[in-house]
């Protein structure tokens, strides 16, 4: 299906959905949504809806995968068959396997895996509805779920994508902008310790544009990070005040 390219940057300088270039989509976050998981979170970035669950530290099955000096981190990023316009086969695709790997590696750099040897920490990221930026939404949801599960981490990671559409650098691109834009750069950022944990780039950016895009992404991620902290605090402030 190849459609006519839609107008991505309107004449008034706003994007096709009315956002400014440096504006995020409406974000909704909730933690502790699943009772069977040790930690869970639900995150919406506009039309992208993601559920994340964390189990562990728990015993590793199969046993031979256990690591003697640290916890085994396993991550499954999966898109529900109903998450896209055309039905997506529920079997893990090449893309999903890759995203599971990059998200796992992003979180592995933040989690203190050496505190729980011979155990596994399992992260499940389920995309319920996809509208661009699913890996960054997934990363955000996963770090909220990990904090909820009490897994020791160096910092929370916030994910956000920066894109270049019609020559303009824009924050938090959606499906349409990703499809017709020139570049897509998803970033995972831990603002408190100022570390980039995930960085991919699809498309072409000049060195100067790359630097600008990175700054824009850091700005966006810091905004998301603040919301993540607020969500966690709001959820547990009640428990604290009861004591």
């Amino acid at each position: 299906m190849m459609h006519e390219k839609p107008v991505l940057i309107r004449e008034d300088g706003l994007r096709h959905d009315g956002r400014r270039p440096d504006e995020l989509r409406p974000i909704k976050m909730e933690v502790g949504v699943l009772s069977n998981a040790d930690g869970s979170a639900y995150v919406e970035f506009g039309g992208t809806k993601v559920l994340a669950a964390v189990y562990g530290p728990r015993e590793v099955h199969p046993r031979h995968l256990a690591l003697p000096d640290r916890a085994l981190l396993r991550c499954r990023y999966h898109m529900a068959p109903f998450s896209t316009m055309d039905r997506k086969s529920p079997a893990p695709s090449r893309r999903e396997i890759e995203l599971s790997k990059v998200i796992r590696e992003a979180l592995e750099s933040l989690i203190f895996v050496d505190l729980y040897p011979r155990t596994s920490i399992d992260i499940f990221i389920e995309v319920l509805q996809a509208d661009g930026g699913t890996r960054t939404t997934g990363l955000t949801a996963a770090s909220l779920a990990l904090a909820d599960a009490g897994i020791p981490m160096r910092d929370l990671a916030a994910g956000v994508a920066v894109g270049k559409i019609d020559g303009v650098l824009v924050l938090d691109i959606d499906e349409v902008e990703d499809e017709y834009g020139e570049a897509d750069m998803p970033i995972g950022y831990a603002p408190s310790i100022d570390e980039i944990v995930l960085l991919q780039l699809n498309g072409v950016l000049s060195l100067d544009e790359f630097r600008q895009a990175l700054e824009l992404a850091k700005k966006g991620a810091t905004m998301i990070y603040k919301m993540m902290k607020e969500t966690l605090h709001n959820k547990y402030l009640r428990i604290l005040s009861e004591e």
């Binding site: 040790d38 562990g56 530290p57 599960a149 009490g150 020791p152 981490m153 160096r154 966690l232 547990y236």
Partner: peptide, 24 residues
């Protein structure tokens, strides 16, 4: 490292964070 409460031992100058729900 955690989402939780800060505990400070002033005598021994030790700082600890306890998870809000005692997890994991």
């Amino acid at each position: 490292q955690l989402l939780g409460k800060v505990l400070i031992d002033i005598v021994n100058r030790r700082i600890v964070v306890k998870h809000i729900k005692g997890k994991p």
